Amino acid sequence: MVRTEHDALELIHQNRVVTEVPALGTPSLVEAVAGGPVRGSWRAHAKGRLMYRLGRILRASDEVLSVRLVEGKVAFVDPSLWAVVYRVAMEPSRRRRSLEGLSPQARALLTAVERDREVRLDKDSEWTKARETLEERLLVHVSETEAETGRHVTVLRSWRDWVSPTVKEAAESLTYEAALERLREACGGAPTGLGAWVP
Rank of each mutant, 00 (worst) to 15 (best):
V198A: 00
P165C: 02
L121K: 03
V74Q: 14
T145M: 13
R160K: 12
A106C: 11
L139M: 06
A60V: 04
V167F: 13
G55F: 05
S28M: 01
P22N: 04
V85K: 04
L174N: 00
R43W: 15
R115V: 00
V198H: 02
A171N: 11
P22R: 07
T166R: 10
A147C: 06
G195N: 08
G35E: 13
V119P: 02
G72M: 05
V17W: 01
S28Y: 03
Q14T: 13
R131M: 15
V33A: 03
D116A: 09
R137P: 04
D62H: 10
V18H: 02
L194W: 02
Y52M: 11
E132R: 09
T128K: 11
S98W: 02
K73Y: 13
I57M: 09
R184N: 05
E172G: 05
E132W: 12
S93M: 11
V77Y: 12
E136T: 10
R87I: 01
V142N: 06
K123F: 15
V17N: 04
V140S: 04
K168F: 15
T145K: 12
L11N: 01
L65V: 03
L11F: 03
N15L: 01
Y176G: 11
K168P: 11
V167W: 10
K47Q: 14
L194K: 00
A83Y: 04
E10A: 13
E10F: 08
A112R: 09
R115D: 02
R120W: 08
V163H: 00
R59L: 06
R49S: 14
V64S: 00
T166Q: 14
D124W: 14
R115K: 11
D7V: 00
G195K: 07
A171S: 12
E172V: 00
A44H: 14
R56P: 11
R131K: 13
R3E: 15
E118T: 09
V88N: 00
I12Q: 00
W162N: 01
D116F: 10
L50R: 06
G72T: 06
A170K: 07
P92R: 04
A106S: 13
E177P: 05
D7W: 07
A112M: 06
V74G: 10
D122M: 12
V74K: 10
A46Q: 12
G36Y: 12
R56M: 15
P104H: 02
P37A: 12
M1T: 11
L156T: 09
D7G: 02
E71F: 15
E146F: 14
K123Q: 15
P165G: 00
M51R: 02
E10T: 08
G48N: 03
L138E: 05
G25Y: 10
A190W: 01
L29Q: 01
V70M: 11
E91D: 15
S28E: 01
E126R: 12
A171F: 09
G101P: 08
R96P: 07
I12N: 02
E169A: 15
K168Y: 15
R151Y: 11
L58F: 09
E172W: 08
G195W: 08
L81F: 06
L102V: 07
E177Y: 13
E144D: 13
V140H: 01
L156W: 08
G72R: 05
P79L: 03
P92F: 09
S93W: 07
L180S: 04
T149D: 15
S173D: 13
S143E: 11
G189Q: 00
S80Q: 13
R39A: 10
V21C: 08
R97V: 06
W82V: 04
H13A: 14
A108V: 07
